[in-house]
Amino acid sequence: MQIDLLIEQVLNGVQFGVMLFLMAAGLTLIFGVMGLINLAHGSLYMVGAFACAAVAAATGSFWLGLVASLAAAAAAGAIVEVVVVRRLYKRDHLDQVLATFALILIFSEGTRWLFGSSPLYLNIPGALSGAVSLPGDLDYSLYRLFIIIVGMAVAAGLYFLIAHTRLGMRIRAGESDREMIAALGVDITTLYTLVFALGAALAGLAGAMVGALQSVQVGMGEPVLILAFVVVVIGGIGSIKGALIGAVLVGVIDTLGRFLLPAALHLFLPASQAASIGGSIASMLIYVFMALVLVVRPQGLFSANA
């Protein structure tokens, strides 16, 4: 097996992981600060992808599309928070699950109404198409490298925001004692809307960037949402660091599993069987990893409240 191919798959895994991080960071932040499980996070991912595809198609600029995806997802998030989600903070998880499940139905059918049932296509911008030469004589897709860099930059930005700014201080205070910071005169209602819109914007950004790699269609968000749940379970609820490490682990394990398992099984099975059995097992690998983490550390690797 060529080492080049392996490195390329590892990079693909990291790119996938970074995209999962953008989803998981918002989920874990919203859960950590507001105690809310948000199933509609996948819908915000979809909103970002559709906004980017629609604006890119209208203006011909992917970059305007990217800006539009951030704005649309943040706006959708803020509206959803003010109209619906705000009423759910004090409810139990069952009510939160149901209400946000209802939001998925509304978002999915609403998007079908607006854009029709056929998928939209989003092209990789010209400046980022093609391959780039990495050290070691390796060619890699420039666009995927761009996603990795953006994801890492967002991770660094989030770290700075939460650890070193006034807003971040309030978010951390909200995580540990929401009554107290409300009593200290912080406008907790606006803070919650801000955090929700921030998480939504990250999901929208992920959707827009992935939209250029896959087709943009209704229902694209939920499989990613469930993987982001796996990431949050592995990383620990409320921990941004856990979300980053969990996401990259999940991305790399999933990608390498699909690449290596069929090849490994091919050593003692015929090619067609190795491909189908290897593929089936590889699709379960990250869940097995999640189960292992649960056995060793039920609260996740980096739980904020552990």
């Binding site: 749940f229 949050v232 609820i237 593929g279 699709s283 056995v295």
Partner: peptide, 24 residues
Amino acid sequence: RTSGVYFIMITLAFAQMIYYFAIS
């Protein structure tokens, strides 16, 4: 082994695992 919101996410994830297994 877990409860609350973890339980929701984990049962969802395991069901998704079986779903992908059935597909592949």
